[in-house]
């Protein structure tokens, strides 16, 4: 909370007209050009065929979120994250009963099951959560910049800034951010933080889901290294993996990378076929290009002003508030 308050004051302090203009100028400079994944960017490689569907990551995730909320003093919220006993997560019936399982406001990650046509006793399991895009649409969309992308990758959310317009939910290509509609006064946008949110005991360490996984499905390392590893695995075991690292190029790249079984198409496993272009590149180009560079508001103003002057009637007896006619 301390950091947020400091930042709040800093922002308020800088919000004089001059400060604001500079702010917009710098952010529009950021807005141009494609975002290249930096070398420091960490990532997670998910080896989907290795997953055994034990759902311990779901437990660990809820536990970490609970501890983080408690550390921030959000007792009520912590209560909502509180997981059942870990044994309860052994229950496999959820895969049959719940359809395609999607994240929920107080459950950032979910496991889904897909039958294995070749080995019926070894079904596939996929894990869904925020992919921590390299160039996140949620971040670009947010009217108050409530999302930040940390240098090492996590996309995290500052609830105090949020006004709850839910444009981030519209923008996210993966349908990840979840809203606490049932919270009357302080609803938050909820999504995986890669355990980098304030108060999270795993902050700066390996995220909870990765740490708990008994099958070592996920690897947490530099994104560039993970990509090399992924492609090598595909080369060595073409009969296990499909020749596609999901997240390498989708929406401009994501921090989470998936090695998928070759038996299924991307979509059959609940993933989406997405363009390799990051959506914010187009909207920001339109916004900055058209409105700021080629046809800036000041030019409009001058143009309309001169039109007003040129078309003014010879004498303006009505006293209509047309100003320039009086000169």
């Amino acid at each position: 909370m301390g950091v947020s308050r400091r930042e709040f004051l800093r922002v308020v302090g800088a919000s004089g007209v001059a400060g604001s203009v500079v702010g917009v100028a710098t952010s529009s400079a950021e807005g141009s050009g494609a975002v290249v994944p930096s070398d420091d960017l960490m990532g997670v490689l998910v080896d989907v065929p290795k997953c055994i569907g034990c759902r311990r990551c779901e437990f660990a995730c809820k536990e970490a979120a609970m501890q983080a909320s408690a550390a921030r003093g959000e007792t009520k919220e912590a209560e909502r994250f509180k997981p059942d006993a870990i044994e309860a997560f052994e229950d496999k019936s959820v895969f049959d009963d719940e359809g395609l399982r999607r994240p929920e406001p107080h459950c950032y990650t979910k496991i889904n099951r897909f039958p294995n046509p070749e080995q019926p006793d070894k079904p596939f399991f996929t894990k869904v959560n925020c992919l921590h895009c390299v160039d996140p649409a949620c971040l670009s969309a947010c009217i108050v910049k409530a999302f930040r992308k940390l240098d090492d990758g996590p996309v995290i959310y500052d609830a105090w800034k949020c006004m709850g317009c839910r444009y981030c939910m519209v923008a996210c290509p993966f349908g990840i951010p979840q809203y606490e509609y049932d919270n009357l006064w302080t609803p938050q946008v909820r999504k995986c933080t890669l355990c980098a949110d304030e108060g999270n005991p795993n902050k700066g360490k390996v995220p909870a889901c990765i740490k708990i996984c008994p099958a070592e499905v996920m690897t947490y390392a530099k994104r560039s290294d993970l990509l090399a590893v992924a492609h090598e695995k595909i080369r060595n075991e073409p009969d296990v993996y499909q020749d596609h690292v999901y997240g390498e190029h989708e929406v401009g790249g994501t921090s989470w990378l998936y090695l998928l079984p070759h038996q299924y198409s991307i979509e059959e496993l609940g993933f989406l076929e997405l363009d390799s272009k990051a959506p914010p590149r187009l909207t920001e180009a339109i916004q900055h290009g058209v409105f700021m560079k080629f046809f800036p508001p000041a030019a409009w103003f001058a143009l309309l002003g001169s039109m007003m002057w040129v078309s003014r009637p010879g004498a303006d007896q009505d006293g209509e508030p047309t100003g320039e006619g009086h000169h």
Partner: peptide, 9 residues
């Protein structure tokens, strides 16, 4: 107060 020049909204 929280200007975000990249946001269309």
């Amino acid at each position: 107060i929280l200007w975000h020049g990249n946001s269309v909204l």
